[in-house]
Design a binder for these strands. Sequence first.
DNA 1: TATTGTTATACTCTATAACTATA
DNA 2: TATAGTTATAGAGTATAACAATA
Lengths: 161, 161
Amino acid sequence: MSDHVSRILEQWSTHRPDLDCSPMGVIGRIERMSKFLAPAIESLIHSFDLSRIEFDILATLRRSSGPLTPTQLYQDTMLSSGAMSTRLEHLVNKGWIKREPSPSDRRSCTIELTQTGRENIDAIVTKHVNNERDLLQSLNLEEQEQLASLLAKWLSHHENK
Amino acid sequence: MSDHVSRILEQWSTHRPDLDCSPMGVIGRIERMSKFLAPAIESLIHSFDLSRIEFDILATLRRSSGPLTPTQLYQDTMLSSGAMSTRLEHLVNKGWIKREPSPSDRRSCTIELTQTGRENIDAIVTKHVNNERDLLQSLNLEEQEQLASLLAKWLSHHENK
DNA sequence: TATTGTTATACTCTATAACTATA
DNA sequence: TATAGTTATAGAGTATAACAATA
């Protein structure tokens, strides 16, 4: 299994034999897989004139059980409030979402998909998931499950801190 | 093992029961782990007044068996030639590296760590690896190896394309 | 006083392409 | 003609903080 990171580890063991670099074998590969996936995923999303962040916002709205506020959205996506405002403005102008005043709190508003926004994101999400399935083909389903399970274990320890 | 992505998958199964979203269980978690790791790793590196890219350049030089050219460096780090020039200029000014004319090709130059650059990066790499080791503590060594092995398998299929 | 959301500002970083020099 | 490296330009995207309105 001679990948790029394994060659990096060999170089380190030659030039820094005092150092146990095995953590790089995990973290270096996580980062590297992430870097390979990004363009493959983004090229599909960009073909619908959406940035990755905008797609995430639309997908979050689609799978939620009702309208969300900008605050809920920027906390969920780890974005600043200012950046979220800019993104939402774009999505309103492009007809994806509608912004309406909150009935209970007059400082706030609710964000919701438009009719066509919902139809379009439904179609895109389907293509997106199939794209992801293709990208994972080099692992069989059992290996994919093992991988997901190990990542879930790590994440469950780090998300609530 | 109830992490954030598992809740996302539940939401999709409620609102899009027609869609098998299991690929998100892998790819969503890869991206999410990567997003959690980045600030933890960068905060150590930034404390030495280095960007992540600059650290990668210095580490590449440290583990290589001799001086490298800017072209070798930008291909290795997946950066554009222009961006690499800017980074190298910074690192020269800060005393990390030295740039010398290539003896064999007068268009080219060689990039090499300075004496103090090498000493400093040695110390930082040690701290960096220990930091990574800490970050992986929630998985035992066997799990870390399984994870590395699954990632290596995926990467070895995608790196030579 | 604290919170919600928007707007304005400045910053970081990058890719692109034009350019110089050499092969 | 092609390649190595640098420089200049412009663009995308963000965080920060100032701001207005409401709680």
